[in-house]
Design a protein around this nucleic acid. Structure first.
Lengths: 205, 205
DNA sequence: TAGATAAGTGACACCGTGTCATATACATAG
DNA sequence: CTATGTATATGACACGGTGTCACTTATCTA
């Protein structure tokens, strides 16, 4: 988390810094991005940076977290819309996430996040449907999810994790193999169908 | 790939360097590991390192690749043993991989690889059951896999990718949450059952 | 208006990378 | 056996990035 000092900054200074950081993290993945570039673009001295953040990661995960707040809300909305159907909700946010990326800078930011995703990045993404950090959000999820197909809460969590991992992995494959949006979504649907109806079951073709 | 010069080295020198590198990559993840440490341990001058490898990554992926050759063979063997059953084969190598890790250095190497896995690391792991790099290996896989439950080859590939992603993700969760071997394997089995029989199907409880 | 507390600043010490000019070893033809 | 070319070895160095710290400046408060 950024330090108190950062939040005390004027809106103008704050957004200038954030814009500079987004630009840099869109240009290069975390490990290649440099504080030097960020402060140059933002026009602040080196010492100030460390007044606001403990290091590069601090700023980075603050940004990534902010960006994913939207996905978190979207997931809730998708669940409401699809009457608690996990699969349809996931397909919807997968769609949202990969396809509705209007801003090129935003797109590159996320691309770098995914392609160079360490466990911390993965965990940040997982927060969208995970219990660990935002308890309230998680409880809301659990209320909305249709539990009928599942034995117990553990099964629900297990499925959420599994689908999350698949969605995450598919995003990476889409980016590395430069798949079209249509192909990517189709692939994901096929995989969701496997989980819904199983490999050893007659599929409704 | 390491340069010619590296392969021309005496066995003694080569293994000394490799041992030093393994030690360093077990100590720290790729982005924190330093060439400085490797050459210090191996007792070679800095210039020589660049005679053998183009950079840190070059050496790293050479090592990781070598290590995964074993898993590649194991997967083939597991498929033979289980008469082409993808699920049982995966469970077996998942087991092999996470549990049969006798050497602590080896364990830490893999741990760092998984926790700080970028798309290149993920792709290297995916080579175990992927078509892109080792065509011959892939064809052998396709011969062995029981195609009965699947509509076509594409479906088989899709399932392989999916299970691969789940196994990969589970390994990371096991390491971050420090799950016991038993719990990790049990979780994986539950998830495999979901794919086998589907969520919307009566399970044989 | 003094004194305290918070914020701003940039020079600096430190560390790691990749290169390059130079040195050395080795092979091979004359 | 020597000359000459080719492969390998070496470490000093330029470059660029990080995090800190002593010092300055601004802001608040009694």
């Amino acid at each position: 988390m950024p330090k108190e000092t950062f939040f005390n900054l004027t809106e103008n200074k704050k957004s200038k810094l954030i814009e500079a950081a987004e630009q840099e993290f869109a240009r290069a993945p975390l490990h290649e991005a440099s504080i030097a570039n960020i402060i140059k673009t933002a026009g602040i001295p080196r010492g100030s940076f460390y007044q606001y953040f403990s290091d590069k990661e601090d700023l980075y995960f603050f940004l990534l977290d902010s960006k994913l707040q939207t996905s978190k809300k979207n997931f809730i909305e998708a669940l409401e819309k699809h009457h608690g159907d996990i699969f349809e909700a996931f397909i919807e946010i997968y769609n949202d996430f990969l396809i509705t990326m209007p801003d090129e800078e935003e797109h590159n930011f996320i691309k770098n996040a995914l392609l160079f995703a360490t466990y911390r990045v993965e965990n940040t993404f997982a927060d969208i449907f995970d219990s660990t950090s935002d308890r309230e959000h998680f409880n809301r999820l659990m209320e909305l999810i249709d539990h009928k197909p599942f034995k117990d809460k553990e099964e629900v969590i297990s499925i959420l994790q599994m689908i999350g991992a698949i969605a995450f992995h598919n995003s990476i494959v889409k980016l590395t193999n430069k798949l079209s949006d249509e192909v990517a979504i189709k692939q994901f649907r096929i995989q969701m169908d496997f989980i819904k109806y199983g490999v050893y079951t007659e599929k409704s073709k």
